[in-house]
């Protein structure tokens, strides 16, 4: 089996937004749709004892996604490899899945044809991987800092498996029982 996950190394992320733009450009997203924002609380602390940290986000491709069973039309679905995606042909855009997601990682654009809006979300670049099974998602490919690492968790030799097995990783909002599959290596440092 294959289980795609992403490891995000916050020790390396510098908040350049390259992933956000690469995703938007190559997935041809409307302006108001951002699959993978890089959020930050900004500089924290009291000058000059400060620190800062960035959290690159994307769909968590949960093991128990909230957004799939609630879909009335069968558009929101999950592949065997864990990829959660929306079939635009089937989507009513009732936005129940958008409201179901605890991470706010889905939305329908307000800048498109009023009669043809559908719910969009990160698909780990499913279309790209269908053309080329070894392809990496755009956000991973474009990251200068190699802060995003994508791979198969079921393969013990993959980089993600090794990282998750060797470094302490965090996940966001595990309390919903969604089993998110994006693993964060936190930046504990701050200023030396």
């Amino acid at each position: 089996m294959t289980r795609y996950v992403m490891v995000i190394d916050q020790r390396r992320c510098i908040g350049c937004h390259s992933c956000t733009v690469a995703c938007r450009v190559w997935n041809k997203l409307p302006l108001d749709i951002i699959y993978n924002p890089v959020v930050s609380e900004g500089v924290q602390g009291t000058w000059p004892n400060v620190h800062r940290n960035w959290t690159p986000l994307l769909c968590m491709h949960c093991e128990n996604p909230e957004c799939v069973p609630c879909c009335p039309s069968g558009a929101s679905q999950q592949d065997d490899d864990g990829t959660v995606w929306v079939d635009p042909k089937k989507c009513l855009s009732c936005k129940v899945c958008v409201n179901a997601c605890p991470y706010g990682m889905r939305d329908a654009s307000h800048m498109e044809n009023r009669m043809h809006r559908f719910v969009r979300k990160c698909t780990f670049c499913r279309d790209k991987r269908q053309l080329d099974p070894d392809a990496q998602p755009y956000c991973v490919e474009t990251c200068h800092q190699k802060a995003r690492i994508f791979g198969d968790l079921d393969d013990p030799n993959s980089e993600v498996s090794k990282l998750i097995g060797s470094v302490k990783t965090d996940r966001i909002f595990t309390e919903f029982g969604t089993e998110p599959q994006i693993y964060y290596i936190p930046c504990l440092g701050g200023q030396a």
Binding site: C70, A75, L92, C94, R117, V119
Partner: peptide, 21 residues
């Protein structure tokens, strides 16, 4: 009218689990 693709509304009856159905 709140639906993004109103023409496809009939699909609500194509799944089993959804509460909206």
């Amino acid at each position: 009218i709140d639906l993004g693709q109103p023409g496809v509304f009939w699909r609500v009856w194509t799944t089993a689990t959804s509460i909206i159905k």
